[in-house]
Design a protein around this nucleic acid. Structure first.
Length: 855
RNA sequence: GCCGAUGUGGCGAAAUGGCAGACGCAACGGACUUAAAAUCCGUUGGGCUUAAACGGCCCGUGCCGGUUCGAGUCCGGCCAUCGGCACCA
C-alpha cells in the first residue's frame, strides 16, 4: 500500500498552478485613479484585514479566518463589477524581533524580513486575492518616514476648543504653544516595567502587569511624550454614531472613554484662603457630604496637613508609594486612609467637615479629590463605617428600600434648597445655585487619559525631534534647560542607528542613547532617543494602502479621496479599544488639518470569533492543541481549508476546530470535481461525458436560482456557513442519479461563479475544463429570477390548536376561503374536531392553516 | 459589583412570530470490493404504543412566568458559561 493516498481531487496541482497564474497576470491589482487601466465608471470597495505582526511562529488558523471572509467579499465584489482595494501588509515593529536581537545580535530588520517572507508565502498558499503591489511594512523607512511626518503634524497642531478641532499651532494666540500641542512632553507617573525596560501605556497594563510577558509594572515619574487624545474624547464618542460597528465594540469604546456628567464644586478650607475643588456626578447629594478625601498624591496635602498629623500623613503616603499597582488593587477590598487635621466647609450646610487622604481616591481622575457622601456611595459608606464618620441620608429611594446605602436616583430629602425634587431636577438646581455663588459649575469628566507615546526601545520609529540647549543655560545641560524642536520634513526619515547591543539600559534611558554619534545632531542639539510605540504604524496604514509608493505625500489626494473610507474592516476583538481608538484619533487630526477627507476611517467593522482547539480550549503550545494551517493545506488543499474556516459556524462566534469537519468540506469539493470530471481507465481525470449542453428540468431551474439568491444574500450579510450549506444542497441535487443521467453545462457554469469566492482554485480549474470563455474571475455575478422560485403547488400544514395534524397540497392560487374549506374537509381533521366548536381558523398563505377549537 | 455576548440532537450548527434540528460531522445498516480505503444508497432528538413494519400518541430549543390562534424567536424574572471593565467619585 502506498503511503501517499490518492487525493480526492488533484488540488496539489491545481492550487499552485492558479496561484502562479494570478501572480503572473497580476489578476488582483487594483489600479488607482490616473493609472492607465483605471475605470472610473466602476464603484469602489475597500475591504481590509487587520494586518498581522509577522511573528516567527508563522500563521495560525485564527489569522485566515478573517482573511478568508474578506477574501470572499473581495472576490465577490470584483465579480459584481467593483473596483476592489484588498491589500495586506506587516505591522512589523515590536518586541519579539528586538528580543531575538538581544539574544543573538541579529538585526531586527533581518528577523523581520525572514518572518515576512514566511508569512507571505503562507498567505499566498491559501490563494488570497491581495494586491501585493500595495504591500506595506511599517519598519520600512519609506513607510515610517510618513509615520514620522504625521507625528510632526500632530506636534505642530493644537486642539482649538472654540472650533472643536485641531488647527496648526500657528493659529494659537496664547503665551506658550508647548502647553497646548497635541504632542507634548510631560513628567508623568508612568507605568514602568523593569523586565521589559520600558514604560507602557495604561492600555498595555493588565492587572498591574505588562500585557506582553506579564511582568510587574510600577508607577514611576519620567519625562515622556504624550499625545493629547483626551481633546478628542467627546468626538471619539459622538462620531461612533454613524458607524456600522457591533454595538458591543461601540460600548467598549464608550466605556473606555468613560464620559461622566456632573459638577465641579469648590470647598473652602476652614480658617484658610485655599479651597479644594472636587468633581461629582451627584451634586444633588451635596447636603450629605460629611467629609472630604484627597488622593495621596494631591498637591495641597503638604500645605493643609496640621502639625500633629504630619507623621501619620507622611507614613501613609510612603506606604502607598512603595506599593505596585498590583498590590494596590489587591488590597482594594479594605479601605485605608488618614485624617490630615484640616477641615473644609460644606457650601450647602456651612458645616465643618474633616479632610482625609485615602488611596481609594485616584489622582488621575477628576480633580484628585472628592466630597464623600457615605449615605449614597458604596465606597464612602465603607470608609465612613470603618473610621466612624457621620452618615446622612439625603435621597429617598423610590421603593421602600432603606435610604442609607442607596446609590440610585430618587427624591432629595434633608436638603433645604432642593427638597422634594427628583435627583435629575435637584442636580440642575443645586448646580445653578453653586454657579450663582461662584462655588461650582457643571462639568464633564472622562476616564480616558492622554496617550503615553514614547517607549525606551530600539525597534521602533525614532521621533523626528531634537533637543536644543536654551541659550541662557548652556552650561547646565539638564532636561529642564533644554527645549524640543521638530526636525524639518526634508530631514525625514529619521532612521534608527546601527547598534551592537540592543539591550535596554535598565535605567530608563532608551537604547538609542548608546549610539553617541547618532544622538549628536549638532554642536548644540541632540536627538530624542525614545521611539514610538508599536501602535504608531497601524494608526494610518489603511491610508498608505491607497497609495503605497507615493514619495511626495503620505497618500495621494486623489487616491485618498477615491478609496477612503474602509467599507469593511475585519479583525479580532483584542483591538476593540487600543488600535481602533488610536487610529480614529489620528484620522481625526489628519481630517481636521485637511489632509484626508473623512473623519472616521472604518465604516463597517466586524470581529471574527476566536477559533478554539479540538478540545474546546484556547489553542496554546502548553495544551498541545494548536492546528497548523500548513498541515491542513498539505493534506486537504487550500480550498478545503478556506471552506472549512467559513463552514465552522458564524464568523463572529467562538468555535472549536475539527479535522473531521475539514474532511467533510473536502468531500464536498471532491464531489464538485467529480460532478464535472471523471477518471478514465488510465486513472487520468477528464471531462465527464455526463456534462452536456441540455436544458434544465424545472426542479433544476429552481435550485439554480434558489442557490444564486441564497449565496448572494449570505455573502452580503457575511453568513458564509449557510451560503456553503446551500451550495452543498445544489451539488447533492445535481449528482446524476435515477432517471437523470446528465449534468447541465450552463448550471455548472453558474455554480462555479458562485463557488469562486469560496474555492477560487477549484472553480477556476473547472471553469477552464468546461472550455468556458475567459477566466472565472472575469465573469459577472449571476442574478436570480424570482419567477423560477415560485411553485404551482405548495404543501401546507394543517394544525388543530397549534399542533400539526396533517398536511395537504394546495395550489398557490388557492384563496384563503378555499384553503380553509380544504382543511375542514380533510378527513383526519374532521375526525379530530368532531363535536367541538370551531372558534377561529387562521390561514397563513402558502404555509399553514390553524383551526382553533373549544369544547 | 457593573457592562456585553451566548445557552437548540452524540458534536459544529440551521430556522422574515408559522411544520424545530436545513447543511455538515460522528454513529449504525446496506451496495460495490477477494478485502480494505474511497465512493454511492439508507437510518439517525427522546419516549410510549405495536410481534414487527406502517401508523398513531406524548415530550422536547438553560429554568419559571407572560403576550399570541401559534414562541427557539417577542416581553418580565432567574440560572449557567464566556468576554470586557473594575475604588473612575
Amino acid at each position: 500500500m502506498s503511503s501517499e493516498r490518492r487525493k480526492p481531487y488533484p488540488f496539489d496541482q491545481i492550487e499552485p498552478k492558479w496561484q502562479r497564474l494570478w501572480e503572473d497576470r497580476q489578476s488582483f491589482h487594483a489600479p488607482n485613479p490616473g493609472d492607465k487601466n483605471f475605470d472610473p465608471a466602476k464603484p469602489k470597495f475597500y475591504v481590509l484585514d487587520m494586518f498581522p505582526y509577522p511573528s516567527g511562529a508563522g500563521l495560525h488558523v485564527g489569522h485566515p479566518e478573517g482573511y478568508t471572509a474578506t477574501d470572499i467579499v473581495a472576490r465577490y465584489k470584483r465579480l459584481h463589477g467593483f473596483n476592489v482595494l484588498h491589500p495586506m501588509g506587516w505591522d512589523a515593529f515590536g518586541l519579539p524581533a528586538e528580543q531575538y536581537a538581544i539574544k543573538t545580535g541579529q538585526h531586527p530588520a533581518i528577523t523581520t524580513r525572514d518572518n515576512i517572507t514566511k508569512f507571505k508565502s503562507q498567505l499566498k498558499a491559501i490563494g488570497f486575492s491581495y494586491d501585493w503591489q500595495r504591500e506595506v511594512n511599517t519598519t520600512d523607512p519609506r513607510y515610517f518616514k510618513w509615520t514620522q511626518w504625521i507625528f510632526l503634524k500632530i506636534y505642530n497642531s493644537w486642539f482649538n476648543p472654540e472650533t472643536n478641532r485641531a488647527e496648526p499651532i500657528s493659529t494659537y494666540r496664547g503665551e506658550n504653544p508647548d502647553s497646548v500641542r497635541l504632542a507634548y512632553v510631560a513628567d508623568v507617573a508612568v507605568n514602568w516595567c523593569q523586565d521589559l525596560g520600558t514604560v507602557l501605556a495604561n492600555e498595555e497594563v493588565v492587572d498591574g502587569k505588562s500585557e506582553v510577558g506579564g511582568f510587574p509594572v510600577v508607577r514611576r515619574p519620567m519625562r515622556q511624550w504624550m499625545l493629547r487624545i483626551t481633546a478628542y474624547a467627546e468626538r471619539l464618542i459622538d462620531e461612533l454614531d454613524g458607524l456600522d460597528w457591533p454595538t458591543g465594540i461601540k460600548l467598549l469604546q464608550q466605556n473606555w472613554i468613560g464620559k461622566s456628567e456632573g459638577a465641579e464644586i469648590d470647598f473652602k478650607i476652614d480658617q484658610r484662603d485655599e479651597s479644594i475643588r472636587v468633581f461629582t456626578t451627584r451634586p444633588d447629594t451635596l447636603y450629605g457630604a460629611t467629609y472630604m478625601v484627597l488622593a495621596p498624591e494631591h498637591p495641597l496635602i503638604d500645605l493643609l496637613t496640621t502639625q500633629d498629623r504630619q507623621s501619620h500623613v507622611k507614613k501613609y503616603r510612603a506606604d502607598i508609594g512603595s506599593k505596585s499597582d498590583l498590590e494596590r488593587t489587591d488590597l482594594a477590598k479594605d479601605k485605608t486612609g488618614v485624617f490630615i487635621g484640616a477641615y473644609a466647609i460644606n457650601p450647602a450646610t456651612s458645616e465643618k467637615i474633616p479632610i482625609w487622604i485615602a488611596d481609594y481616591v485616584l489622582m488621575g481622575y477628576g480633580t484628585g479629590a472628592i466630597m464623600a457622601v457615605p449615605g449614597h456611595d458604596q465606597r464612602d459608606l465603607e470608609f465612613a463605617r470603618k473610621f466612624e464618620l457621620p452618615i446622612v441620608d439625603v435621597v429617598r429611594p423610590p421603593g421602600d428600600e432603606s435610604p442609607i446605602g442607596f446609590v440610585g436616583e430618587g427624591i432629595a430629602i434633608n436638603s433645604p434648597i432642593i427638597d422634594g425634587l427628583t435627583s435629575a431636577e435637584a442636580k440642575k438646581k443645586i448646580t445653578k445655585w453653586l454657579e450663582e455663588r461662584g462655588q461650582g459649575k457643571g462639568a464633564i469628566n472622562y476616564k480616558l487619559r492622554d496617550w503615553l507615546f514614547s517607549r525606551q526601545r530600539y525597534w521602533g520609529e525614532p521621533f523626528p525631534i531634537v533637543w536644543e540647549q536654551d541659550r541662557q543655560n548652556r552650561q547646565s545641560g539638564s532636561d529642564q534647560d533644554r527645549h524640543h524642536r521638530a526636525l524639518d520634513e526634508s530631514e525625514l526619515p529619521v532612521v534608527p542607528p546601527p547598534l551592537e547591543d540592543y539591550k535596554p539600559t535598565g535605567t530608563g534611558e532608551p537604547p538609542l542613547a548608546k549610539a553617541k554619534d547618532w544622538v549628536r545632531y549638532s554642536d548644540k542639539a541632540t536627538r530624542e532617543t525614545n521611539v514610538m510605540p508599536q501602535w504608531a504604524g497601524s494608526c494610518w496604514y489603511y491610508l498608505r494602502f491607497c497609495d503605497p509608493t507615493n514619495d511626495s505625500r503620505f497618500v495621494g489626494e486623489d487616491a485618498e479621496k477615491y478609496w477612503m473610507n474602509v467599507d469593511l474592516y475585519v479583525g479580532g476583538t483584542e483591538h476593540a479599544v487600543l488600535h481602533l481608538l488610536y487610529a480614529r484619533f489620528w484620522q481625526k487630526v489628519l481630517f481636521d488639518l485637511g489632509f484626508v477627507t473623512t473623519s472616521e476611517p472604518f465604516q463597517r467593522l466586524v470581529n471574527q470569533g476566536i477559533i478554539l482547539g479540538e478540545d474546546n480550549q484556547k489553542m496554546s503550545k502548553s495544551r498541545g492543541n494548536i492546528v497548523n494551517p500548513d498541515d491542513v493545506i498539505a493534506q486537504y488543499g487550500a480550498d478545503a481549508f478556506r471552506l472549512y474556516e467559513m463552514f465552522m459556524g458564524p464568523l463572529e462566534q467562538m468555535k472549536p476546530w475539527s479535522m473531521r469537519g475539514v474532511e467533510g468540506v473536502s468531500r464536498f469539493l471532491a464531489r464538485v470535481w467529480r460532478l464535472i470530471m471523471t477518471d478514465n481507465q488510465a486513472g487520468e481525470w477528464e471531462l465527464s461525458p455526463a456534462v452536456q449542453d441540455v436544458d434544465f428540468t424545472k426542479a433544476q431551474q429552481k435550485i439554480v436560482h434558489a442557490t444564486i439568491k441564497k449565496v448572494t444574500d449570505d455573502i452580503e450579510t457575511l453568513s458564509f456557513n449557510t451560503a456553503i450549506s446551500q451550495m452543498m444542497i445544489f451539488v447533492n441535487a445535481f449528482i446524476p442519479r435515477g432517471e437523470t443521467k446528465t449534468v447541465p453545462l450552463a448550471a455548472m457554469r453558474t455554480f462555479l461563479i458562485l463557488l469562486n469566492p469560496f474555492a477560487p482554485h477549484l472553480s477556476a480549474e473547472l471553469w477552464e475544463k468546461l472550455k468556458s470563455r475567459g477566466d472565472v474571475t472575469e465573469q459577472r455575478w449571476p442574478d436570480h429570477d424570482e419567477k423560477f422560485l415560485v411553485e404551482d403547488e405548495v404543501e401546507m400544514a394543517v394544525q388543530v390548536n397549534g399542533k400539526v395534524r396533517d398536511r395537504m397540497t394546495m395550489s398557490i392560487l388557492a384563496s384563503e376561503a378555499e384553503v380553509k374549506a380544504a382543511a375542514l374537509a380533510n378527513p383526519k381533521i374532521k375526525e379530530l374536531i368532531a363535536g367541538k366548536t370551531i372558534r377561529k381558523v387562521v390561514v397563513v398563505p402558502k404555509k399553514l392553516v390553524n383551526i382553533v377549537v373549544g369544547d
